[in-house]
């Protein structure tokens, strides 16, 4: 039984907000997801961990209604992402790996636009933007154009945009992949802070240490398939050394031996297998 399933089994306290059930999806005729399924509950950060090309971003896009599953189903807050796509979008905030900011607009303009798009009045939107600027410490850059911002600040603005309508669900796609160590640490602090305490957070990453640091539950994915799921501690116990990294790589090797993917390369199995915290 997976970690989440155990939590749900206790009843009452947890309720699955993201439900991904046996989802398959091909892109350009090539299968990218081959029966992915997992749950995510509020108040926890669920890590979607896997190497590049595993299908993490495609999974997030399916949850964010940007893609439709070929088969299987995705539900967010009890709503089907295909049948209720607009309602689902109101309840999620998506942080993409690339911040995707309009370079010629100021931070304030971008955030007010996002807030207004979610139906906030002009006054409320401006107040909310000020709050987020304080929370994420970029108040001094509010009136700067995005083009002149550092990567770290751009990522903060993108995170603020994902939070601007205070959604119950946050989808974070490699939020620290392009950040330096200090900027990544700032994002980590934020994710473990009170602002995220009651949110359902799905964190897609290939950085093992990030998962160990932040995630209560881990969904290991490779070659479009979930290969391991559970808490960091549960997964670590599966290896004789008790190391999470080695246990996770074992799961990848098992998948490779099962013939659904190429075996992990020597480089992949080395120290830099999934990169380090704060590395690209």
């Amino acid at each position: 039984m997976s970690g989440i399933a155990q939590l749900l089994d206790r009843g009452g306290q947890y309720r699955a907000v993201i439900e991904v059930v046996d989802v398959r999806r091909s892109l350009g005729g090539k299968p990218v997801l081959r029966g992915v399924g997992f749950l995510a509950v509020p108040g926890l950060i669920t890590g979607l961990l896997g190497p590049n090309g595993a299908g993490k971003t495609t999974t997030l896009r399916l949850i964010a209604t940007l893609l439709r599953p070929d088969s299987g189903s995705v539900r967010v807050c009890g709503l089907d992402t295909v049948a209720n796509s607009r309602e689902v979008r109101r309840s999620i905030g998506l942080l993409t790996e690339d911040p995707g900011l309009y370079d010629r607009l100021t931070c304030r303009e971008q955030l007010v636009f996002a807030a207004r798009s979610f139906g906030l009045s002009s006054a409320v939107a401006r107040r909310r933007v000020e709050e987020l600027a304080e929370l994420l410490s970029f108040h001094d850059r509010l009136d700067s154009k995005a083009a002149v911002l550092s990567k770290g600040t751009r990522q903060k603005i993108a995170l603020a945009r994902a939070l601007v309508h205070d959604p119950p669900v946050l989808l974070l796609d490699e939020p620290t992949a392009s950040l330096d160590v200090s900027a990544a640490a700032a994002v980590h602090d934020l994710l473990t802070g009170s602002a995220f305490a009651h949110k359902t957070v799905l964190l897609s990453t290939h950085i093992l240490t990030e998962v160990q640091l932040l995630c209560r539950n881990v969904v290991g994915i490779t070659a479009g398939r979930v290969v391991v799921e559970g808490s960091v501690e549960d997964i670590a116990r599966r290896h004789v050394t008790g190391e999470f990294r080695l246990a996770f790589l074992d799961a990848l090797k098992d998948e490779a031996l099962a013939g659904t993917m190429d075996p992990p390369s020597a480089a992949l199995l080395g120290e830099g297998a999934f990169g380090h915290e704060g590395s690209a």
Binding site: R61, L101, S117, A158
Partner: peptide
Amino acid sequence: DGRTLESLLVLPYR
């Protein structure tokens, strides 16, 4: 090119 389409399409517009 600017990678802004995803953040636009995830807004609740038709």
